[in-house]
């Protein structure tokens, strides 16, 4: 009996230590940003014109990404990389990980355009849009930022500067990790797998 008690104590200590360790890892990865989206919800319109609530996706891991379809460089590179991440994660994880692409360009990115754009990358993704005020509410909740740069010299007309983060949100809606857009697919997949396992527990 005493042996069992000692074993339980060691086990309990191990669990506590690993919990402390995990908390520390999470705190480190999102440190400097404070609590992101404490409501753990936001509302926008999806690519099919339906209302999208983050809270309706409890039980799924979410990768949140702010971008725009006229972005020639970072956005398609990141979405192509995410296609590789999904490959690495395998078919089972595919349905459990939802990529949420929030457009910062409601002027050009119609729901139809978002739908066609995201379909191309063959990932489990939803494209969201809304009014500028609605999009800004989500941007602010995640302490992201963007600026619209009007340019008369470029045929683009206007371009955006935007933050370079991918937000990993757990099954309860909590932001648990921030990826930089240049992080390699292998690293992203590995961290998602680790966090998903913890999130189940």
């Amino acid at each position: 009996m005493r042996v069992i008690n000692k074993f339980s104590l060691v086990l309990l200590l191990g669990v506590c230590l690993s919990a402390v360790n995990c908390t520390k890892q999470v705190a480190q990865s999102v440190s400097g940003y404070g609590v992101l989206n404490p409501q753990r919800d936001f509302v926008l319109h999806d690519q099919d014109g339906r209302i999208f609530h983050l809270k309706d996706h409890r039980g799924q891991m979410v990768l949140l990404f702010f971008g725009y379809t006229s972005c020639p460089d970072i956005c398609p590179t990141t979405l192509s990389k995410l296609a590789r991440v999904y490959e690495l994660l395998g078919p089972q994880m595919r349905s459990q990980l939802l990529t949420v692409f929030v457009s910062i360009d409601p002027q050009r990115d119609t729901p139809q355009k978002l739908k066609e754009y995201l379909r191309y990358f063959k990932i489990n993704a939803v494209g969201l849009t809304g009014t500028k005020a609605e999009i800004d509410t989500v941007i602010n909740a995640y302490k992201a930022s963007y600026t619209k740069e009007e340019t008369s010299s470029s045929a683009m007309g206007y371009m955006f500067d935007h933050t370079d983060l991918l937000y990993l949100i757990d099954r309860r809606g909590k932001t648990i990790h921030l990826f930089h857009l240049e992080d390699p697919a292998e690293q992203i997949a590995k961290i998602i797998q680790g966090k998903a396992a913890l999130s189940h527990g």
């Binding site: 972005c71 460089d73 970072i74 010299s153 470029s154 371009m159 500067d161 933050t163 370079d164």
Partner: peptide, 15 residues
């Protein structure tokens, strides 16, 4: 000719 720059976490594109 455009340039993308990582400016302290902001990706800035300019011609």
């Amino acid at each position: 000719i455009h340039q993308m720059k990582d400016d302290g976490g902001m990706m800035r594109m300019s011609m």
